[in-house]
């Protein structure tokens, strides 16, 4: 069974969630919890690095959308910094590229936060 692997780093006030693997319906709760933990801790500037993510289900996108509204209310944001080709196709199909900022690399996303 393919699974999701999530690791977390901090760059100053920005949190980077490195999300890899295969995120089907069953694996979404892990991702949701990781986002929740950051938001509850008041860490609202989040970069999602999806470079190693093969697949994201619509529920996974739902988790991002739910969180993005919450962090924006608190003055933060979630930006995608890095994605794999299949994940970018999914983001584009769903129109998510219009709803949050997506950058090809983590550095670009970090730069946008800082500047």
């Amino acid at each position: 069974m393919k699974q999701v692997a999530i690791s977390q780093e901090s760059k100053g006030k920005i949190q980077i969630l490195n999300v890899g693997g295969f995120m089907d319906m069953r694996e979404v709760p892990k991702f949701e919890q990781a986002l929740d933990k950051l938001i509850k801790a008041g860490l609202c500037n989040i970069v999602l690095d999806l470079s190693n993510l093969e697949y994201i289900s619509s529920a996974g996108l739902g988790a991002i959308i739910g969180s993005i509204r919450e962090v924006r209310r608190r003055g933060g944001d979630i930006k995608v910094g890095g994605y794999s080709a299949p994940v970018f196709d999914i983001l584009k199909t769903f129109g998510f590229t219009e709803v949050f900022e997506t950058y090809a690399s983590r550095q670009e996303a970090l730069k946008k936060f800082e500047g």
């Binding site: 949701e32 619509s58 996108l61 739902g62 959308i65 739910g66 969180s67 919450e70 769903f94």
Partner: peptide
């Protein structure tokens, strides 16, 4: 709609 839900 609930915040984490959407419809395609």
């Amino acid at each position: 709609l609930p915040e984490n839900m959407f419809v395609t």
